[in-house]
Simulated assay, not measured.
Amino acid sequence: MHAPSPAPATAPAAALPWTLQRNAHGRLELSRDGAPPEEVTPVRAFPLAAPDEGLSLVGGDGHERLWIDRLDALPAAPRALLEAELAEAEFMPRITRIVAVSTFSTPSTWQLQTDRGDTTLVLEGEEDIRRLDGNALLVTDAQGIAFLIPDAKALDRGSRRLLERFL
């Protein structure tokens, strides 16, 4: 009988050449190359089509300080900080059901169920419904809040029928 061979050693994750932390005011700070920490804001390159691909850390002057190819490739600590910051900045409820519409002409008030609770939106015009990849739709209300329908075909029959009147 042979003794089991030892498991291959796992290489430690490569240390990042930068660090990310929150400052005393709760804002993200990027430190690298021995330079003083600088406040940064994460900005997704493709927030709807590829939210985890292409992330830029932008300084107060609007210039990019660091490019991150894939958010899911980062170690847990910086990834958690960035995901929390992005969640605070990006408010895009997902429509799960269209309960009712006030009229089939615009402006129209929609009663909705979303992943963030029940709400109402005012659709000013059909042009405020944008088609995205696949069956996804982006609905922008009169206040500029964007609502996402990830898959219009996955909505219940009643919601689809109401929505079709505006498409």
Rank of each mutant, 00 (worst) to 15 (best):
M1R: 11
P4Y: 07
S5L: 15
A7I: 04
A7L: 14
P8W: 09
P8A: 14
P17L: 12
W18K: 10
R22L: 14
H25K: 15
L28D: 05
S31I: 11
D33M: 02
P37I: 10
E39S: 07
V40H: 03
P42F: 01
P42N: 09
A45N: 05
F46L: 04
F46N: 04
L48G: 05
L48N: 07
L48H: 04
D52W: 05
L55R: 01
S56Q: 14
S56K: 06
L57Y: 04
G60C: 00
H63N: 13
H63C: 10
D72K: 10
D72S: 13
A73G: 05
L74P: 05
A80Y: 00
L81G: 01
L81A: 07
E83P: 05
E83V: 13
E83K: 11
A87G: 09
E88T: 12
E88H: 10
A89Q: 15
M92N: 05
I98T: 00
I98V: 15
A100E: 14
A100G: 06
F104M: 06
S105P: 01
T109P: 00
Q111H: 10
T114Y: 07
R116C: 11
G117F: 06
T120K: 06
L121P: 02
L123D: 00
E124D: 15
D128Q: 15
L132Q: 09
G134K: 12
L137S: 01
T140R: 09
Q143I: 03
D151A: 12
D151V: 10
L155Q: 02
D156V: 04
R161S: 12
F166N: 04
